[in-house]
Structure formats: C-alpha cells, structure tokens
C-alpha cells in the first residue's frame, strides 16, 4: 500500500500556523467580548460565531469572492504585491483560521468573564496598567480556558475540509491535507489508504477532546 506522510505533515503545519496567527487575535477578541461593552458588541459576537454555524461551502465561497484571483481583495493583492492566495498552502491556513476562530473565542470567553472584576480592580489599585492586569491577574486565573480554546481550535483547523477544498484546491504534495486526502482516496476506491488518515485524525481528535476536557472548567466532557 502506498502511504504518503505528506498530508499528515501538511495538516499539522497548516493547523499550527493557523493557531499561531489566530491565537493572539482570538484571545484579544475573547477578552474584548468578555470585559468591554461597546456599541455593536452583539453584532461582533454574531460575526465571530458565524463560521461555526455556516456550512464550510459558504465559507469557501466567501473566501473565493474576497480573496480569489479576481476577488474583491484578491485582485488588488495580485496587482500590488503579486500575491496569489488561491490554491496555495497559505489559502489552507486562512480557511483553517476562519473556522478555528469561533471555537477559540467561545471557549476562552467564559473563562475570562469568570475572573471577578473586583480581583482585577485590586491589580489596578496597586498601579498595574490594563496590560499588566491582563498578564498578572486575568491570565493566571483564566489560562486553562484559553488553552482549552486553543486546543479545540487546533483540532478544528486540522480537520478543515470544505472551505479548504474550495479555496486551497487539491494539489498533491502542496495542498492535500489529511481531510482532502481521505476524500480523494475514498472517491478513488482506495479505502485502505483513506483509513490510515482516518485513524490518524480520529486519534488526534480524541487526544484533543481529552485535553480540552481536562482544561475547561465546565462543559466539554469530564
């Protein structure tokens, strides 16, 4: 049986880069939603959740419309920077980031909300700035929820299929992540080859769910 480890490597790489990029932004968003009230906060909440409820095909469509070769932004990126995203590993990273964001924000947000304001105010009264309060007071209390969010977001990023297929395409050796390879192998009747990646993804997801269950203060199993 021909077995190629490239899809495994690529999936892990894509998901890792996606989480490195979306992690800080998602944590900041979770903090913003947890700690601040501002006009349009509900709308932002909805927008963050949207990729979780939208079919991946809709996300893929939006990505093509926005970042495609002739997309609203894609055309300008190509003309100004010569940057072409469609059918590249970068496109797979972007698709993974979009679907990972809501899981991160929605898992981290309750942990941040659970940090009592009074506790943070003590920090402020002792002369800490907002960043200091976050790092020295909020984070030490809420870190488990944030890490659980990152772990779940990573799992979602590794498993991203629909939007990736539309936006990153299937180029063997370049953009064929594990989920794409499973689909291609199944369609070609190579069920045995599909099974290898199915087992890898299932094992990985199992680990992630167990890890998130240990970290999250409530919900997510244990």
């Amino acid at each position: 049986m021909s077995f190629d480890t490239f899809p495994i490597q690529l999936s892990l790489q894509v998901a890792t880069i996606a989480i490195l990029l979306v992690g800080p932004a998602g944590t900041a968003l979770a903090w913003l939603q947890a700690k601040r009230s501002y006009p349009g906060r509900g709308l932002v909440d909805g927008l963050i959740l949207l990729p979780l409820v939208l079919p991946p095909s809709v996300i893929g469509y939006f990505l093509i419309v926005l970042l495609g070769r002739r997309g609203l932004l894609g055309e300008a990126l190509d003309a100004s920077l010569g940057l072409r995203l469609v059918f590249t590993p970068t496109a797979a990273v972007i698709a993974s980031m979009v679907v990972a964001l809501p899981l991160l924000v929605k898992t981290a947000q309750p942990s941040l909300e659970a940090v009592p304001r009074a506790m943070e105010d003590v920090g402020r009264s002792l002369g800490l700035g907002e960043w200091g309060v976050f790092v020295r007071v909020t984070l030490p209390v809420a870190w488990k929820g944030i890490v659980a969010g990152l772990v779940l977001a990573f799992a979602r990023a590794v498993g991203e299929f629909g939007a990736t297929l539309m936006f990153a395409g299937n180029i063997p050796g370049r953009t064929n992540t594990m989920p794409l390879e499973i689909f291609a192998a199944y369609q070609a009747g190579e069920d045995g080859r599909a099974l290898v990646y199915v087992l890898v993804l299932t094992g990985l997801s199992m680990l992630v769910v167990l890890a998130a269950g240990r970290l999250a203060p409530r919900g997510f199993g244990s």
Binding site: R69, F87, G169, N170, I171, R174, T175, Q187
Partner: peptide, 20 residues
C-alpha cells in the same frame, strides 16, 4: 506541483472560467 485537481471536468472548466 503546480497542478490543481478538480473533482470533475465541470469544476476544472470553472477554475479556468473564473481565472483562478
């Protein structure tokens, strides 16, 4: 490594039509 695979010939045509 520059060849993107379409799921059927209609998808391949669409890739070209859209200029992707």
């Amino acid at each position: 490594d520059r060849t993107v695979f379409g799921g059927d010939v209609a998808m391949v045509l669409a890739y070209a039509k859209r200029g992707e």
